[in-house]
Design a protein around this nucleic acid. Structure first.
Lengths: 203, 203
DNA sequence: CGTTATGTACACCGTTCTGTGTGCTTACGG
DNA sequence: CCGTAAGCACACAGAACGGTGTACATAACG
């Protein structure tokens, strides 16, 4: 228990201030936005000295970029690595993220930072491309005629639902899922050896 | 031109400072974002005294809300009032806004302000609903089986294209238009009432 | 003409922001 | 037990922010 999760070197004797900082970032950046969350408030919420925060991160920009990297495994892998679902169901499962994820933080960061050169913006771009690529992979697995196109289309639907949920303050993912179902059915030829007969959708 | 666009009373004799302020807002809020544009910079760009700006707008919030209201006629009416197009073509024409509109300012404002109670956020919400309603009207005119659903779906596609264009720095409207074409063809029965699919959608 | 609304110039207030400097405390490892 | 690294408390710098006060100029309209 003591020597796992080492830092850059191998020491790590402290009491885990970095973790608290990132944990508080997750909460505050999401609740209040990045620009409206000052370092003072963030350090207070993390119960971390301001001096310590700036010893872990060279500046707020680096903290924001690191904050975004914390979303990767939980969302992306958690959906695509489900072997209990058919490829088609996996594509649709990407739209089942209403409760814990009220808004896509990548879009929020890209809009708030408003600088395509910002490290966090670049990472958001990479992440969105990665999601589209994994959707395309799954689409290929499902036997889609044009997997890249379908992946890009589904990614667009996800982003549309996220943006619209934000602006309208109402969940738009069900509507996006409905469109996705149509697109998937249109893209997968019936002759392809795919089992889309297991239509037990959890409702 | 001299005696139209009266202010709260009926005088309006000055040299049009309000116009310059709003014009500069259009440019700066779009280029730099709302939060990253200070009133000092904005007044300098508009060649307007800071004092004058605060005589026209009680604060930056009101200015932002008014800035958003300036987009209505140019985009919304310019697309839906084209009588030279069929209803179906009009629905697709809503996706032909790549050059002049690099990003939907309503989404940007809602994300940047980060307060659903903000006047500009409320207006953004109303505007998005209005767009969906007009899309639904046009969908009804085109003979769609479920116009409200189609309108909501097309609105979601537009927002998705806008958000994705922003994050990826690449035009996503053609892909959205392709999806729209599929949805429209699926929603409009060729000859008679043939509703094959009836998904539930949350308004 | 004079009144009045409109706009200007510029200093200024208080707050908040990111980021540092400095000195002290604590906990872990050898 | 002692050295060292991690963390803490706190003040502070420097800038940008939104917003105001004051005194002055100018253009329109009666």
């Amino acid at each position: 228990m003591t020597e796992l999760e080492k830092g850059p070197q191998g020491r790590r004797r402290g009491r885990g201030a970095r973790e608290r900082i990132l944990s508080a970032s997750q909460q505050l950046f999401r609740e209040q936005g990045i620009n409206r969350t000052g370092m003072d408030q963030l350090c207070a919420a993390a119960q971390v000295s301001k001096r310590t925060a700036y010893q872990h991160f060279t500046g707020k920009d680096e903290l924001v970029a690191e904050y975004l990297r914390r979303f990767d495994p939980s969302v992306l892998s958690g959906v695509f690595d489900r072997t209990d679902l058919t490829p088609r169901e996996r594509l649709l499962a990407a739209f089942d993220i209403p409760p814990t994820t009220p808004l896509c933080p990548y879009i929020a960061a890209a809009v708030e930072l408003h600088d395509p050169q910002h490290p966090a913006s670049q990472y958001a771009r990479d992440y969105k491309k990665a999601v589209a690529a994994r959707l395309a992979d799954t689409a290929r697995e499902a036997g889609a005629a044009d997997p890249e196109q379908l992946g890009e289309q589904l990614a667009l639907l996800i982003d549309g639902a996220a943006a619209r949920t934000r602006v309208l303050n109402a969940d738009a993912f069900p509507a996006a899922a409905a469109i996705a179902a149509v697109l998937i059915d249109n893209a997968i030829p019936a002759t392809a050896g795919d089992d889309r007969r297991r239509e037990e959708v959890s409702s």
